[in-house]
């Protein structure tokens, strides 16, 4: 029962830097988080008007997902239901939770915004990626203190090894108070662009890259 699964592409956005497969492809260290994410969207010429309707957490996740799927278009080779999206973070949807809370806590100017409330759940970002790419596979959102390579590798490998799915978009997307960090990668049963074996050690290596 020795199965191997492969990380075929990975992308991170943190500290004003976008890296794809470990090399820096865009940088701007001057901007606040929200502006930087918008700039990344424009720089990579992504066109999806709904991007502007998303909250910051979803925008960040969306942009990274666009970059890895452009690099490794697993949605073209796999059935909708065979692709999973498993993402984790630490702050949940706290950034938007606070915005909703501000909207309802001002006694004199009291208007809950439906468009804000929608994003007070962290798994909405998975929904956004799923809608954009019509991905219908299994999807779960975990809350952890920090990126847990042991957990993620064993969870995803067991999903793949039990043939529940054929491939997976997975990783970490966190946004709170101008601090942000996104790290997404694809895992497949087959070798591909990078063909890095999906183990906890390998994951730690590319995560800390």
């Amino acid at each position: 029962m020795e199965y191997k699964n492969y990380i075929n592409t990975f992308c991170s956005i943190k500290n004003g830097t976008v890296s794809i497969d470990g090399s820096i492809s865009f940088e701007d260290k001057t901007l606040p988080a929200a502006d930087f994410i918008k700039l990344v969207y424009k720089h990579f010429q992504i066109s999806y008007p709904k991007f502007y309707k998303m909250d910051q957490l979803s925008r960040l996740a969306f942009v990274v997902s666009e970059l890895i799927l452009k690099n490794n278009p697993i949605t073209l080779k796999n059935e909708d239901a065979d692709i999973a999206i498993i993402i984790a973070n630490s702050a949940s949807s706290l950034e938007t939770d606070e915005e909703h809370q501000r909207n309802i806590s001002d006694k004199n100017n009291y208007f809950a915004s439906p468009a804000v409330f929608v994003y007070t759940l962290p798994n909405i970002l998975i929904g956004e990626i799923a809608i954009r790419n019509s991905i219908k596979g299994e999807n779960t959102f975990f809350i952890f203190d920090k990126f847990d390579a042991d957990f993620m590798s064993s969870y995803i490998n067991s999903l793949l090894n039990s043939n529940k799915i054929k491939c997976c978009i997975t990783g970490w997307v966190d946004f709170y108070e101008n601090k942000y960090e996104a790290f997404l990668y694809t895992v497949e049963k087959e070798k591909g662009i990078l063909s890095l074996e999906h183990t906890s050690d390998q994951l730690k290596k590319i995560y800390n890259n």
Binding site: P49, K53, F111, A112, S113, P114, A115, V118
Partner: peptide
């Protein structure tokens, strides 16, 4: 404009606000 159901709710809030 390609608006959706959430936008409609948001416009309802706009009318009140």
């Amino acid at each position: 404009l390609g608006l959706d159901s959430i936008d409609a709710l948001e416009l309802i809030v706009l009318l009140e606000k």
